[in-house]
Design a protein around this nucleic acid. Structure first.
Length: 200
DNA sequence: CTCCCGATAT
DNA sequence: ATATCAGGAG
């Protein structure tokens, strides 16, 4: 199952554009409920203006809100970014921590974002469960749960640990291209013979 | 559970 | 018009 999807989506990887752990963290925080294309469009200019944690605190919050406006939820995200930068400076020496327990303490960072960041920083402690991983895991019969934490518990039992980092990427790419939320293209799916939800 | 919220596809 | 997009906080 995983190998078939790996062949189908050989280029599956994170689609956010970033050049440092800090840019990675910001990109993932901004990506909540919006597309990575939309995030990349905003961060292209954002990362020229905001290079260090201090830069996010040096401007009025309204200015940061305007700079991230197009990603939606801009007030909450601006507040979370400022709180996170404050904590990075005060408790983490201005660096982005790489472990789940540390990342989850940052405002605006819960388990999903923490899993993405720690995984990309080479320290995968769990499996990323986002909207695509959740939908495909349910359709493919990997889980019957609704809660992302319970879904992750089912997945860590099913997915071999070496596959933890790439598994979400495969689910996400397959979810975007084939197993689309509104209209799944079951006739074009390479695992439709194994899928309980297949319409083919 | 509700609220936060813009961009895009259908 | 409405569903969906690499969610999180109160």
């Amino acid at each position: 199952m995983i190998e078939r999807l790996a062949v189908e989506h050989a280029d599956a990887k994170i689609a956010l554009t970033f050049a440092s752990p800090l840019e990675l963290l910001v990109s993932v925080m901004l990506s909540a409920q919006t597309t990575d294309v939309n995030v990349n469009r905003v961060t292209q200019a954002l990362f020229v203006k905001y290079r260090r944690p201090e830069d996010y605190l040096a401007v009025p919050q309204e200015e940061l809100e305007r700079d991230i406006f197009a990603t939606g939820f801009f007030r909450q995200k601006a507040r979370s970014l400022r709180g996170t930068m404050q904590m990075l400076i005060e408790e983490f020496g201005g660096e982005v921590p790489a472990t789940l327990p540390e990342l989850v303490r940052l405002p605006g960072v819960a388990r999903k974002t923490a899993n993405v960041v720690s995984s990309e920083l080479g320290n995968p402690e769990g499996i990323v469960v986002d909207t695509h991983v959740r939908r495909l895991s349910q359709r493919l019969g990997f889980t019957k749960q609704e809660d992302p934490v319970k879904i992750e518990q089912d997945l860590v039992r099913l997915v071999p640990r070496p596959d933890w980092p790439r598994f979400p990427h495969l689910m996400i790419w397959h979810g975007r291209r084939v197993c689309i939320a509104r209209r799944p293209l079951c006739e074009d799916c390479v695992v439709n013979d194994l899928c309980p939800s297949s319409r083919v």
